[in-house]
Simulated scan of single mutants.
Amino acid sequence: MANTAQSMGRLPSGLGICTSLPDIFYIPELIFGGLVWCLVASTYVFPSNPQGWVMFVSVFCFVVTFIWLVVFTCDGHRSSSGWAAADFGYHGFAAFLYLSSSVVLAYITITLKDIFYILDPKYYKINIAAVVFSFVTTLLYFLHAIFSANRWKDF
């Protein structure tokens, strides 16, 4: 067993994901991504196409990150050696998706400020909170990708 753990390098398993540097970001990514999802869903979705993109990104990344967390927790990554590269690839891709949706959400919130105020000022405040949490989530995914790249390089 020790030989297997030694050959897998620094990929965590079980509750070890709560202590390793790149993987400690899983829980905050899920929390802040879920907040973005809930906040955008609770507002008046106008216009629907850009806001739909934000919803797609937040739901997609939430679901895939949760599956990724479960795989690492249940030792599903022990069967193959490409998990370090896949971890970096996914989190880099998720950071790019979240950056694109964060910029779109910020643009829509700033551009349609007056319309949101006519409908209800709380929609504008909720959209501002969604923009802030979306950029925080982008930062978390980016940091996870950077630390995963370092782990992949050392692997």
Rank of each mutant, 00 (worst) to 15 (best):
2 A>P: 01
2 A>Q: 03
6 Q>L: 12
7 S>H: 03
7 S>Q: 12
8 M>R: 01
13 S>N: 00
16 G>W: 01
16 G>N: 03
16 G>A: 05
18 C>A: 11
18 C>Y: 13
19 T>Y: 07
20 S>V: 07
21 L>C: 01
22 P>S: 03
24 I>M: 15
24 I>D: 04
25 F>H: 06
28 P>A: 06
28 P>K: 06
29 E>V: 08
34 G>S: 12
34 G>Y: 12
37 W>D: 07
37 W>S: 07
38 C>W: 08
39 L>R: 03
39 L>N: 03
40 V>G: 09
40 V>K: 06
41 A>H: 03
42 S>Y: 01
42 S>R: 13
43 T>K: 05
44 Y>W: 12
46 F>Y: 15
50 P>L: 09
52 G>K: 04
52 G>L: 03
54 V>Q: 10
54 V>W: 03
54 V>S: 10
56 F>Q: 00
57 V>H: 06
58 S>R: 02
60 F>G: 05
60 F>N: 08
61 C>Y: 05
62 F>G: 06
63 V>K: 09
63 V>D: 08
64 V>G: 02
64 V>S: 10
64 V>A: 10
64 V>M: 14
65 T>K: 07
67 I>W: 08
67 I>E: 07
70 V>Y: 10
70 V>Q: 05
70 V>C: 07
71 V>E: 06
71 V>Y: 06
72 F>W: 07
73 T>I: 12
74 C>T: 15
76 G>P: 01
83 W>V: 10
86 A>V: 09
87 D>P: 05
87 D>H: 11
88 F>W: 05
89 G>N: 01
91 H>K: 02
91 H>I: 01
93 F>V: 10
94 A>Y: 11
95 A>C: 09
96 F>D: 04
96 F>Q: 07
97 L>Y: 09
97 L>E: 05
98 Y>N: 13
100 S>H: 03
103 V>F: 12
103 V>H: 02
104 V>S: 14
104 V>N: 09
104 V>D: 14
105 L>H: 09
105 L>N: 15
106 A>D: 08
107 Y>E: 07
110 I>R: 15
110 I>P: 11
111 T>Y: 15
112 L>G: 06
114 D>K: 14
114 D>Q: 13
114 D>F: 06
115 I>P: 02
116 F>N: 05
117 Y>L: 13
118 I>Y: 08
120 D>V: 02
120 D>R: 12
120 D>H: 08
123 Y>T: 09
124 Y>I: 11
124 Y>A: 12
128 I>S: 09
129 A>F: 09
129 A>R: 15
130 A>M: 03
130 A>K: 02
132 V>A: 15
132 V>F: 14
133 F>T: 08
134 S>K: 03
135 F>K: 10
136 V>P: 00
136 V>A: 01
137 T>N: 15
137 T>E: 14
138 T>L: 13
140 L>H: 04
141 Y>M: 04
141 Y>E: 02
141 Y>V: 01
142 F>D: 00
145 A>Y: 01
146 I>M: 00
146 I>E: 00
147 F>H: 00
147 F>S: 00
148 S>I: 00
153 K>P: 05
155 F>E: 12
